[in-house]
């Protein structure tokens, strides 16, 4: 009787596919994370628009206020 082994060619192919998909997902997550960091760094006064407009956190609004004074 032939033993059921884990190293059948089919299993190797499945393992390769799973590892490949896993690595692709990790790469995708890293890419989205990197993109987020890059965009936030370039985004300027993001905190000034957190849920609602906060003039105290917006450098442009601060400049205008100082100018009026």
């Amino acid at each position: 009787m032939m033993a059921i082994t884990r190293d059948h060619e089919l299993h190797k192919r499945r393992l390769g596919r799973n590892v490949g998909v896993g690595l692709a997902l990790v790469a995708f997550i890293m890419l989205v994370f990197g993109l987020t960091v890059a965009k936030v760094q370039r985004g300027g006064s993001v905190e000034g628009y957190d849920h609602g407009y906060r003039p105290g956190m917006d450098p442009a609004a601060q400049e205008t206020t100082r100018g009026e004074e």
Binding site: I4, L10, R13, R14, G16, R17, V19, G20, V21
Partner: peptide, 25 residues
């Protein structure tokens, strides 16, 4: 319960069990 397929040794095309490289191709 095993995941052994009856058609493994057959001459049918082995679709559904492609390797990662096949999808890259």
């Amino acid at each position: 319960m095993t995941d052994i397929r009856a058609d493994i040794a057959s001459d049918e095309p082995e679709t559904g069990e492609a390797g990662f490289g096949d999808f890259v191709q």
